[in-house]
Amino acid sequence: MREMERDMNPCCEDNRASDLVLNILGVLDDGVHVLTAMAATPDGPQITQAVVEYRPGYSGIDFEGIAEIVRVLAMTAGEGTGGLIVRSGKGMIGRRVFGWHIGDLVAEPIGSSELFSAYCSDPSTGEPTPPPPYTEYAKAPTLR
């Protein structure tokens, strides 16, 4: 039935993408977070970013940026693929990086070793490079 609903309701992808983004925002701790979303399309990759800051008594959300993330992730509905990476401030100088592969608006956590390989390799040679100081590559939490 849900498959049939998706086919009949073109805004369903936007609703599912909104739910996905809300789930992602719900797992973020206090700190400054840069979210980068990407969807592979026939016209090339679509990429966008948004910044979110949580601290006690304050939430700063780039609503326009989050709306763009929803738009880009909605492109992964059906056979589409993409991903979302979060770079979180950790204390004064540390960073934590985690993310998800996105396919048909389902998020699968990316493992820490896969993230490390992707971000700590020379793009032209594939050779390993040292990670930036104080950066932790972590497996993303499983989303509901």
Rank of each mutant, 00 (worst) to 15 (best):
P123M: 01
F63D: 07
A37V: 10
I69Y: 13
E108P: 13
N23G: 08
N23K: 12
P133V: 12
E114N: 08
T76E: 05
R96I: 14
G99M: 00
L73N: 11
I66L: 10
M75F: 07
K139P: 14
A118T: 09
P133H: 12
D14I: 15
I61H: 09
P42G: 05
N9C: 14
M4Y: 06
L35Q: 00
G44A: 06
T81A: 14
P10Y: 14
A67S: 10
V21D: 10
T135Y: 05
D43F: 08
P56Y: 04
P133L: 13
A40N: 08
T125G: 01
E53N: 03
A37P: 10
E127F: 00
Y119G: 02
A118K: 10
C120G: 01
A50V: 01
K139E: 11
A67Y: 03
G94H: 02
L20I: 10
A138W: 07
M38E: 09
L115S: 05
A67D: 12
F116R: 08
E108F: 12
Y119F: 10
M75H: 08
G60T: 02
C12Y: 09
T129W: 00
C11V: 14
P123V: 02
E5L: 12
R16Y: 11
T41L: 06
T48G: 10
R144P: 15
P141N: 11
